[in-house]
Nucleic acid binder design. Structure first.
Lengths: 205, 205
DNA sequence: GTCTATAACCGGATAGAC
DNA sequence: GTCTATCCGGTTATAGAC
């Protein structure tokens, strides 16, 4: 990754904010320039085109978040200690990086290739069997610690349970009165609910 | 809801397709007009502006899907028969209406007010306690059929587990080789995984 | 109602001075 | 490196004939 000078960083910060609020197509280079305290021409001088600027902005943020969440999965831990830690880290990383979810959604709509590429890089895997998730789950199954679930399904479910509230946040907060997805109390409830659901479902105690 | 004549319907169908592929900002009225077999002027004659057209298109599709999924929740059924039916219906409704997920995401990004309004209308609820979901879960808890979970959390989890694979489809299919989210075999696996996870988690049989 | 032609506008990108 | 001024392409929207 490049090093950026002070002006470039001002532009990148402003761009992140405006892209986040307006979307790629909706964002105006004029607005970005104003927010950065410079003018359009300078923006083009540094980043050539709006498209290029967008790519750099989103890639940095996505890489940072995915690196944190997927970057160092410790396969050596026992499943029952690993899972709660993973959930906690995932949940709080998303909560403290609200931009990442939206950018990732937009990338999904654009086909998802760039995110997929980043995922492959940070997870550093070649095949599915090579995936740390997959290995951790498979080992737990073989050791009889969990039911013989399909690893893909469990992986998808873990991610879904963590990510979805943030993706659907505006809707959920409007439909469920008083809900505040980013509040500490919700995060704690959510963490507990996810861990318990994965470990025990809703069967009576 | 309005009735639309033949030309209007041609425009609406074309618009749905183009908005879906290009997004609201990316869509060109020219493209929509061509696909509908008419010209831009006529499009404006019927719908005034692109903005207005977009609102009508998205509202119709979202209303249709949400109506199907949330419209007639039968509260009288027992929880353990109700849940699998709900999951099945939800999953297959999303799978057969791929447009709805994307439009709903865009609406979320736009603040989610319109979807929230539609949700309130089709669920026909005033407060959270008025929500059929909430009542079904609360009854099951009181009858001791399930653990005393927080209803909001369980509702969010159910929706998350169903919706997420479709939202993240492009990424998942790129990262997990050979995965086809919309295939019958994936849908069956997914349905089983969701139902089992909610009912029993992953505790060993 | 439906078309062609065009107006009016907006926004990204560049030229060129400093 | 940074600015002002301007260009130019593309897009929505409308005027006006049929």
């Amino acid at each position: 990754m490049h090093e950026f000078n002070e002006t470039e960083n001002k532009i990148l910060d402003a761009a992140a904010q405006v892209f986040l609020e307006q979307g790629k197509a909706g964002a105006r280079t004029q607005t970005i320039a104003e927010l950065a305290g410079i003018n359009k021409a300078l923006l083009h001088y540094y980043f050539r085109t709006k498209e290029k600027l967008y790519e750099i902005v989103t890639e940095r943020i996505i890489r940072k978040v995915l690196g944190n969440v997927l970057g160092n999965l410790d396969e050596t831990q026992e499943f029952e200690t690993w899972l709660p830690k993973f959930i906690h880290n995932y949940l709080y990383t998303i909560a403290t990086n609200p931009m990442a979810s939206r950018f990732m959604l937009w990338e999904l709509e654009a086909g998802g290739s760039r995110v997929a590429q980043i995922v492959r890089e940070v997870v550093n895997m070649k095949s599915l069997e090579d995936n740390p998730f997959y290995r951790i789950i498979n080992r737990a199954v073989q050791e009889g610690k969990i039911r013989p679930v399909e690893p893909e399904q469990l992986i998808i479910s873990m991610i879904a349970l963590c990510v979805f509230p943030f993706v659907a946040r505006p809707l959920l907060e409007k439909v469920i009165p008083g809900l505040d997805i980013r509040s500490e109390s919700f995060l704690q409830s959510r963490e507990k609910a996810i861990t318990e659901m994965i470990l025990h479902g809703i069967c009576p105690a």
